[in-house]
Design a protein around this nucleic acid. Sequence first.
RNA 1: GCCGGCAUAGCCAAGUGGUAAGGCAAGGGAUUGCAAAUCCUUCAUCCCCAGUUCAAAUCUGGGUGCCGGCUCCA
Length: 477
Amino acid sequence: MPDLRFYNTLARQVEPFAPLEPGKVRMYHCGPTVYQRPHVGNYRAFLFADLLRRVLEQRGFQVTQVMNLTDVGHIQGDADAGEDKLEAEARKRRIDPWELTRRVAEQFFADLRALQVRPAHHYPRATDHIPEMVAMVEKLLQRGCAYQVGHNVYFDVSRFPEYGKLSGNRVQDLEAGARLEINPEKRHPADFALWKSDPAHIMKWATALGPNGFPGWHIECSAMSRKYLGETFDIHTGGEDNVFPHHECEIAQSEGATGKPFVKLWMHTKFLMVDGGKMAKSLGNVYTLDDIAARGFSPLDLRFFILRSHYRGSLNFTWEALAGAAEARKSLCDFKGRLAAEFNRIIGYDPNQWSPVVAATREAFQVAINDDLNASAALASVFELRNRYLRGQLEPSEFRWAEVFLAEVDDLFTFLEAGHSGPDFTSDQVERLLQERALARQQKDFKKSDAIRAQLASAGIVIEDSSSGTRWHRGGI
RNA sequence: GCCGGCAUAGCCAAGUGGUAAGGCAAGGGAUUGCAAAUCCUUCAUCCCCAGUUCAAAUCUGGGUGCCGGCUCCA
């Protein structure tokens, strides 16, 4: 296997991957805040996490994957007048915030299933981990990393000199009050809330820290990752917007509380653009899986569109681009179907000896995917194999190997599921229909022959007429 | 103002010093009753300017534009 390398935001460079514990990888993904339906932008981060996990697993690592669900609201500003988005949305919908998070979480999991994302091992919810968060806040107070003002607790940035090592922001360069009112309670503008108290809050807890309390935005990830993955773990991922302040603050909290390194490798996905610009509700371009379906696309089309690009590169979502991805996916499904239909032509297959051509393709694929998940380059090798096959440059003895390779590719990407709306036909039924069609064609009854072709097409069966007769295979969409 | 990142054909997107992968779309031809299938074929000097180098899309400097962060956000 080629070397596995990843870009580490912390090091600002691509570096070789080595797990803390041989053979095992523990990783944490910043998941959704469950107050609104996830959209295509969110999916990019989640699909990236899925691909990362699969690449690690295919290399034989035993992966423990954790993705949090933020189901508690955070005030928008540190100054107490801020509005809680989760509670605001709940009010808008006239439902209880608990009911809101339950519904959105359900939708989130349904979306993940549709996108064929492998379930993480744990999906911890913030509201289920109040004691863990309180314990960590108390620890930070004990260690002098935090201070209390009434029932509010703030992290003292001056007690963590490495603050800024992830984002490159230096405390002295942060413009206090640039976009947010200065909170007079804080000793330093860069200090951030660990725990807040507000009687007006709906989701609130009475704890050792005081009454009517609720967690600061960052503490849940520190507390929950520690619970499920330990004080130091391998990989932490999220969208690029999480680098600062969220992940920077997590590092400060976790390392401040334990005195140990928090995470070895930080990976961040770049924001998805829509129509060349940012995605925003006001622009009406915040798309969900429902919008994708309404345009006649499969969730797997979106999956392929997102995963075929590099996670750190900008990706521009347009309907035209999605259509292009859907066509490309279709052609690979077709390739798979054609290979499957070759079963009776395969001769000279040696299960112990890789076909050199397919082995070389596989090597190119693996080199690319192991190099910081270069999916575009990896998938190019799959298309090249397809072209080779269609040009007759692949021997029948190699077909089986091509199928093995495609299965490996699909184990990582999962987009080769053709799917069709029509009925399932057995091979015998297909043959019978093709005989009927051949007769109709002889009699120049093209209306009937085209009807049969359409019938087969709806069942995902592609037919090709040639001077030497009609061939068919499954794999159409 | 400060901190990151990106800029490759109509569209999507690889490539980080040696002369532009791959996909989609489009044009021409073949095949076909027709074709949505398939084959052959055509289609970029890499945002701009200036440097370094025998050689730059790839390095340096300066612009311009876009994205993210300094507020919740994947």
